[in-house]
């Protein structure tokens, strides 16, 4: 007997709830690409769970016609850990933001990534607190003037991908809300990866931090300011694709092709490198330091997954001791009988 799975469309993944993000918010695009991408995975909607914390991005689960939990601030990775541990059959997405994931929930993010559960974490990075109306976030640049930092932010920003790599992430990628094809492809890669997929999406908050990523989006500048990573290919960028990244010792440098420099001199991207240092180095390339910022998959390696290992231990215990027998348990150890 064979059962025909219904073919789903993007619209099938939309819930009946009105989307309440501000008009023009970058979140709309991420929602649209997610809905567009999911049918290609062939996973029925009832096998998918979206879990979020608190913040604008965390309203996401309400708009998906799947199972979902809108939890509390920063804790979504911990909920996902429990859920995936007992139900490895489910596809689990964690939706978080720069405040939710890196500030109040930093600890959970770190530990979810290091456990490498088979879940997908999408961090919407808009470099601001939107839902609380405009305070600086852990990814806001130094000197950022916001409601809570009228004289400029004085704490050093975090770089989400550097953190993920530091936490031994097995899959790390970056995309941009308005770069819709790239975003859809990146989400697809994340969904396909077995292990924790961590994706940072540059997302525009047009109300409280409009234009924060404009240098990566503007038609005039984006080719100069971003570099698309492709496995096995040299790192080339620029409007005329005439620039590249070369490794000088442990430092990357921007070089111009020609004048004795060929593609072979450039750094070649290897997303499967077991050693994470090159991926880390890429994650440190910042616009303000004169580098194009990489987008695409930084790292995708295969590693043991917590949910697998946990359930293997259960199976191994059953194989060794047999299915649990309460009477045997109760009567184990020293006992005595009163007649």
């Amino acid at each position: 007997m064979s059962t025909q799975l219904p073919v789903l469309k993007a619209a099938d993944f939309g819930s009946d709830q009105d989307v309440r993000w501000c008009p023009g918010c970058g979140d709309y695009s991420i929602l649209a690409q997610m809905k567009k991408m999911l049918p290609s995975m062939g996973v029925p909607r009832e096998k998918i769970v979206f879990i979020s914390g608190i913040g604008c991005s965390s309203r996401f689960p309400y708009y998906m016609n799947t199972y979902g939990i809108h939890s509390i601030h920063g804790r979504a990775p911990a909920l996902a850990t429990g859920l995936k541990s007992v139900r490895p059959d489910l596809m689990v997405w964690v939706i978080t933001g720069d405040g939710d994931g890196l500030s109040i929930g930093g600890n959970h993010l770190m530990h979810a990534i290091r456990r490498n559960l088979d879940i997908n974490i999408i961090l919407f990075n808009n470099r601001i607190y939107g839902l609380t109306k405009g305070q600086y976030s852990p990814t806001s640049p130094l000197g950022k003037v916001t409601k809570s930092t009228p004289m400029g932010a004085i704490d050093n920003p975090l770089h989400p991908l550097s953190i993920a790599i530091g936490c031994e992430a097995s899959f790390v990628a970056r995309s941009i809300d308005t770069h819709i094809k790239h975003l859809e492809t990146t989400l697809h890669r994340a969904a396909e990866h077995r292990g924790t997929s961590f994706v940072e999406v540059y997302q525009n908050c047009n109300i409280f931090n409009d234009g924060a990523w404009e240098y990566t989006k503007d038609r005039q500048t984006k080719a100069e300011n971003t570099i698309e990573l492709e496995h096995g290919k040299p790192l080339i960028f620029g409007t005329n694709r005439d620039k590249g990244i070369r490794l000088n010792g442990l430092e990357p440098e921007v070089v111009e092709l020609g004048k004795g420099i060929t593609e072979d001199d450039l750094l070649f991207h290897d997303e499967k490198a077991s050693e994470p240092s090159l991926a880390y180095l890429l994650s440190r390339m910042r616009h303000e330091d004169g580098f194009p910022e990489p987008i695409g998959v930084f790292r995708a390696i295969d590693k043991p997954r917590y949910d697998d290992e946990l359930n293997k231990q259960v199976d191994a215990a059953k194989a060794k001791k047999g299915d649990g027998d309460l009477n045997a348990l109760f009567n184990s150890g020293e006992t005595w009988t009163v007649s």
Partner: peptide, 9 residues
């Protein structure tokens, strides 16, 4: 929170 996730599941 892991407990909430597992209960939902």
């Amino acid at each position: 929170c892991t407990v909430i996730g597992a209960a939902f599941a």
